[in-house]
Design a protein around this nucleic acid. Structure first.
Lengths: 214, 214
DNA sequence: CAATAATTTTAATGTAGATTAAAATAATGC
DNA sequence: GCATTATTTTAATCTACATTAAAATTATTG
């Protein structure tokens, strides 16, 4: 049993609890699955697709997750978690609303194109079981809300030009969420993304020259 | 036979060739399919899902498309076509590069949230058969290239601040592509999107205040 | 209204892929 | 090295679709 008595405790002394053989493999699996899902969608990738990426048999995956749905759910949870961390660090590290927005984008994008990736795109939430779906939706909403709060903060402290925070948030998040669709691990491009995206996406927040479009 | 002799010709006199009973139904089907695919992904939606939306049987769809793969392909083609039209109109209607970019975003977004929608998100291109995949990839690349050309034009004519056109294009397109993920037909929100997105996404192109991020 | 063509349904068939149990192999602690 | 526990595989089973052919229905035309 992977979490029993003496064995677990001994490991705990030498490594983070998350770095047991089991957790390491589980982690590899989640990343392989995320890569597959991002390519061909949740239902479009078979467990064989995922396991092939790992040099395993499809059946082996069942040692780590209860079933396929659980696998996506975990992928989505991980994506949410990484996003949340980026948001928290940004709020902690930035002073003005603008700085926090900039940092959040920077952190999140770095995570998505860096070694932590690939991060799953949450594009098939409706396929999850109700409980899982609700949990992901909740954390998603939370994430959007946090970003909108940052924007509002920036507008108040004068670092961000007044704007429709809901729409601005949607626009910026969309850009970020879509990255895995066209980025596939090229290191040089990763650098471009990290240096350009934060700037591109925050320029929108600076400009005072706002007037009706047509 | 739907395209034979006298019958077809008579219809041609009273309506656009695209408005035959057959073409109308085909069109309804593509839109229903796009809605389903955007929700649960290509492989995640069964033909029954699609046909249920139409008050039909799954088997009926085979009268309009050869198979399921053909159905996605057609959805993607339609999406590409609508995007291309927006781009062409924008280039025709706008003078400066900036105006063209603004108009393109405006036109494309209006199409996506308007009556022409739902438009399929091309998120499972790798699941298409090689020929179809190549065709969609080609037209996709073409689309990106056109937008980048507009950006370069704007930089040259001074209407757009110098920028990494590749990344800027990716950022803007990502925002637009992601819209169907969170927009689900609410009319009032459609208005917000149409009025806000073009502005939000082009503010990025105006600002001269560019400096390294960190 | 009859006849022909267009559309849709009913009822099978076939297959990919998720899932499971039992057996086999690999790792670990003593 | 032995015993135990952890991990992976092999080999079945089961089910949800995609797909098809033939029949039924609905529309159109003269």
């Amino acid at each position: 049993m992977r979490s029993d008595g003496k064995y677990r405790q001994i490991l705990k002394m030498t490594a983070k609890p998350d770095e047991t053989r089991f957790e390491l493999q589980r982690h590899r699996i989640l990343k392989a699955a995320a890569a597959c899902f991002n390519q061909k969608g949740y239902s479009g990738t078979s467990l064989k697709d995922v396991s092939r990426h790992l040099g395993l048999t499809d059946a082996a995956l069942y040692y780590y997750v209860k079933n396929k749905e659980e696998l996506v759910f975990q992928c989505y949870l991980r994506a949410a978690e990484l996003g949340r961390e980026a948001m928290e660090r940004a709020v902690r590290d930035g002073d003005t609303g603008f700085e926090q927005a900039l940092l959040y984008i920077q952190y999140h994008v770095e995570i998505m194109v860096g070694d932590a990736g690939p991060v799953a795109i949450m594009s098939e939430i409706p396929s999850l079981k109700r409980v899982h779906r609700n949990e992901i939706l909740e954390v998603s909403r939370q994430h959007s809300a946090s970003f909108e709060t940052i924007l509002r903060r920036g507008i108040e402290d004068g670092s961000i030009a007044p704007c429709d925070v809901r729409m601005t948030g949607n626009a910026i998040m969309g850009s970020i969420n879509w990255i895995p669709k066209w980025f596939h691990g090229k290191t040089d491009m990763a650098a471009d993304i990290c240096s350009e995206f934060p700037m591109i996406l925050t320029l929108t927040l600076k400009n005072q020259d706002r007037r009706p479009v047509s």
